[in-house]
């Protein structure tokens, strides 16, 4: 099944073909753009985003502002890389803290995306940065989500506000609200609200998420999304944007080999920055998001750049 892996090879091949050329012709650009389109689709970038993106690449590659110091293949790679980084957010954004504590961070996303694990990671990281976080167990739906958050809280060494047993018992909106009050009373400076996973098409649960948001008035709402997601990333991101709205995105499971085209789709469709990358199952596998690294990953540009330097 080696056929799965040939995408960057094909792209590299197309670019290599441009190597001897002095100037890019429209035909050269079309051929390359076709391969880039293919590469992006294999990376699960949404088709609409691919179209807009390749359109922009084509225009720039044929325009006057290309870097004459580079050969045509390098020019194309450079343009692609720059455009990718622009969409992915250029600069990374940091968490917004409340002027008057506690800072409230709410997590939302599809089932199994990695929210509860992220709650633990964030808490541990914030604690290391000198904050005093508390976790709030507002997923009262998924079997033993509350227990899971308690275990994760223990691993992170932070308290967990979990007044309800969950498994269908308790009101998540009320728990979230009381969680913030608990933090105010006990002077914790950050509150991380874990919520149940929900589908973009589930209107009732989306309404519930929106009610949690209204109840806690968060400083940040982080949309947690699995890097392995396919074309559904856009519909899902839009549904969460319309349903709860979010201020930032966290991309999870980046420790695998998914190219993570969703990053491009979500950033471009929602205009919200990707703030963190989750890269493993243990609580330290967590880092700020780097748009440049992600750009190379989506198109496997690291390899391609090396290859072009060699030619």
């Amino acid at each position: 099944m080696a056929t799965f892996g040939s995408l960057s090879d094909r792209l590299a091949q197309t670019l290599t073909n441009l190597r001897g050329k002095g100037k890019l012709s429209p035909a050269d650009v079309d051929g390359t753009v076709r391969e880039i389109r293919r590469a992006l689709l294999d990376a699960d970038v949404s088709l609409d985003v691919v179209k807009a993106f390749t359109g922009a690449i084509r225009e720039r590659a044929l325009g006057d502002d290309v870097n004459k110091a580079l050969n045509p293949a390098q020019q194309v790679v450079q343009i692609v890389n720059e455009e990718l980084i622009t969409i992915l957010g250029g600069q990374q954004r940091r968490l917004e803290f409340a002027k008057r504590p506690p800072t409230v961070i709410m997590l939302a996303g599809l089932q199994g995306a990695g929210k509860t694990t992220l709650a633990g990671k964030l808490a541990k990281w914030l604690k290391k940065e000198g904050h005093t976080p508390v976790l709030v167990a507002s997923d009262l739906q998924r079997p033993n989500a509350v227990t899971q958050l308690q275990v994760v809280g223990e691993q992170a060494g932070v308290p967990v506000f979990a007044p309800e047993p969950g498994n269908g018992v308790g009101d998540p909106v009320k728990v979230a609200k009381n969680g913030v009050k608990f933090a105010e009373d006990k002077q914790y400076d950050t509150v991380i609200v874990d919520t149940a996973g929900r589908l973009g098409v589930d209107a009732d649960l989306m309404k519930q998420a929106s009610n949690i948001r209204k109840a806690v008035d968060p400083d940040e709402v982080l949309f947690v999304i699995d890097a392995m997601i396919g074309q559904d990333a856009v519909a899902t991101a839009k549904a969460f944007q319309d349903g709860v709205d979010f201020t930032g995105v966290v991309l999870t499971k980046l420790d695998g080999d998914a190219r993570g085209g969703a990053a491009l789709s979500v950033a471009s469709v929602t205009g919200r920055p990707i703030m963190f990358a989750s890269t493993g199952e243990t609580l330290d596998d967590f880092e700020p998001f780097h748009p440049d690294r992600m750009a190379s990953r989506i198109l496997d540009l690291g390899d391609i750049l090396t290859l072009i330097e060699q030619v």
Binding site: L110, G200, G230, A235, T236, D257
Partner: peptide, 30 residues
């Protein structure tokens, strides 16, 4: 909800675990 990475997943699990059947979940979403 998985995209093209599903192929790589299948390939590796077949090799290491001798998979005999697939289960497709979360088809209630979009």
């Amino acid at each position: 909800t998985t995209g093209q990475n599903g192929l790589a997943q299948a390939e590796a699990f077949i090799e290491h675990a001798g998979v005999t059947g697939l289960v497709l979940t979360k088809l209630d979403g979009s």
